[in-house]
Amino acid sequence: MGALDKVEIKKLTKRYGTERALGGVNLELAAGKMTALLGHNGAGKTTLLGIVSTLVRATDGTVTYVSSGAPVEGEHVRRQIGMLAHSSLCYAELSAVENLALTAGLYEVDGSPEAITAMLDRVGLEPKARDRAARTYSRGMLQRLALARALLTKPSLVLLDEPFTGLDRGGALALGEQLGILRDAGAIVVVVTHDLEAIAGRTDHVAILRRGQLVFEERGSYSYEQLKDVYHRFAN
């Protein structure tokens, strides 16, 4: 089972008790494209990302993951998912190297010191910090570690949940650049964010959710001004 080619979301509905979080969303995510999922708090972005990441179960509707023309599920899907969130998903008591070794073990990928060093070099985490507990890292360093964790497993479906929160402008732009590289390498990239500036000019696909429904969907690259314009027109 290899990389995912596309993810088809059909009539996706999620209710929490009687509360509706998603009401019949249709969306197709394609390889080599970056999708920006926009909307206000409570619009259903996080729920949608949760369902796509297999951590939330839909009340109705389906998400189909396709790999080389055939649908895949379960662990094969999770194997392909890379998650980057505003929290680091790394243990504060463990060092960067230990965190990556743990991830490598769980994903059964190369976790040798050389592979880990190469990955930490790639994200630019300074060598002298690598054996310190992650608790001592700055926000920017943590985000680098989180990125290294996500990249280590060579994901083909990269999900980003507010990844720019708390990063300075330089950090946000650098992360945006990394996402561009992943996208160009053929991954499906989905980013949920409020930070329109960080994703301006990088997206291939913009979807706006409002009250659990898809109110705007357009393929193509958007500048910051255009993003701001459609966001204000549709998200409210």
């Binding site: 009687t18 509360e19 509706r20 009401g23 009250r211 429904q213």
Partner: peptide
Amino acid sequence: AERELREIRERGLD
């Protein structure tokens, strides 16, 4: 009934 009411209200809001 509570669920149906919610759904009708949501459809109205939509």
